[in-house]
Simulated assay, not measured.
Amino acid sequence: QYVDEIENFMNDLNDDSFDARIASGGGRMQITMDRYEANWPMVEEGWNIHVHGKGRQFASATEAIETYRNESGVVDQDLPGFVIAKDGKPVGTIEDGDSVILFNFRGDRAQEICKAFDEGEEFDKFDRGNKPDVKFAGMLQYDADLNIPKKYLTEPPKIRYTLTEQLVKEGINEYAISETQKFGHVTYFWNGNRSEKFDDNLETYVEIQSDVIPFEQRPWMKSAEITDQLIQAIESGEYQFLRTNYPNGDMVGHTGNLEATIIGVEAVDLALGRVIKAVDKVNGILLITADHGNADEMYDKPKADEKVHKAKTSHTLNKVPFIVYGADVVCKQDDNLGLSNIAATVCELLDVKPNEHWNESIIEKK
């Protein structure tokens, strides 16, 4: 529907002096949009498709999408790459002198393709072939510490007063762990779109390498390996605040595969059971929550002209749980409470003064 609208709109604009069209594309889990350097071959395939026009050819984006769906029933995020061509030639390769704008607002899936355009001879992730000399800019600067990208259209948001900043001031030793798919969520995003640590001595990062395989084929992902190392860290007594992200409900949920998603959620259940035992062992406190829904709603309600339920592969707007384990507290019941209240909650449980700019704590001590 949306691609038809875009292509029809551009066709109405085009004349002898102006030619706008979709030139290439593909699903974010197949080409171009890797994150946290988990799978550079994805970026390489996207580069060859978008820049050099090397890929399966179609007359239009609509034809490409409909063909792939009919061939394999693939959902949008898993669409293989495609190139729009006329008379056997790509309609829109990227050439010397072109301007290229990456319209991503969010930074995690934008950074690797930015490096491919921005970096010179030092780039060693894949062979870019005849790299075109272009003017490249991102929507904003996705990582100010690493200067990615060098040119951008709008100033990135300045995120201040993060939880890590407050804990570092108090000398709290922190530990962050996840597998590659969510490693940046407990480090880069957590610290306010910042790759660098606030304090190298007080922050420990551990990344478990994700498998490069469709998530529905191994829905347990790296939950066991994450838990192994997290338990060691808990029981070591070295850290006062530890955090992790289990990606299963999100990443497997995005596949739209109900059976695989159930297994993924069960894997997290098993992991949490092990974590609870470790928390009990050190007389600690465990907080469990999520940043959005996904696996809670696996199918869209059919529209009037549809006979079957379609897999829902997007995040949901349902409320998420917030569970406090191991502390004698009461959670406030207020519909206005949300993720922005968690920082003050953590500080209250650590007997640390919360930042004055934060929203209130979720808990009340008995």
Rank of each mutant, 00 (worst) to 15 (best):
W47G: 12
E306T: 12
E235R: 04
E259N: 11
E121A: 12
H357T: 14
M42Q: 13
I49M: 14
S17R: 15
I94A: 00
D300M: 15
K307P: 00
F126T: 07
M33R: 09
D98I: 00
S17P: 01
K366Q: 00
K89Y: 13
E259D: 10
S340L: 15
P302K: 04
L13R: 15
Q30Y: 12
G53N: 11
Q30W: 07
G73C: 05
A271L: 09
D291Q: 08
S72M: 03
R194F: 02
G256D: 06
E155Y: 12
A343E: 08
C347A: 03
Q166R: 14
E170D: 13
M42S: 06
D228H: 02
N341P: 02
L287F: 04
G192W: 11
E235T: 06
R128T: 04
I49Q: 09
E5N: 13
I285M: 08
R109P: 07
E259M: 02
E44K: 11
N191I: 03
N336H: 02
V3W: 06
P90K: 11
G184W: 10
T180V: 04
M42T: 02
D269A: 03
I213G: 03
I22K: 07
E297Y: 12
V308H: 02
G171P: 01
N355I: 07
G73H: 00
F241L: 09
K197C: 01
T180I: 09
V346F: 00
Y188K: 11
E122P: 01
T180C: 01
G26I: 10
D34C: 06
I213S: 11
V324M: 10
A23C: 11
V320W: 13
L242Q: 03
V252Q: 02
R160K: 13
D228W: 01
F18G: 13
G88V: 03
V168Y: 05
N257G: 06
L140H: 14
A290C: 11
T164R: 12
E95Y: 11
Q1R: 15
E63D: 06
F183I: 03
R160G: 01
G264Q: 02
I101P: 09
L202G: 02
V134S: 04
E95A: 13
I285R: 07
P157R: 15
V330C: 04
T244R: 03
N248T: 06
N248D: 01
I262M: 06
I362A: 00
S314E: 10
I362L: 14
H315Y: 07
G92D: 09
V279C: 10
K319F: 10
K319R: 15
E203V: 01
M298Y: 05
D34F: 08
E66K: 15
K310T: 15
V74E: 00
I262Q: 07
K89R: 07
W358D: 03
E266Q: 07
V352H: 08
D334R: 04
D305A: 07
G27P: 07
Y161F: 13
S17N: 13
L230N: 03
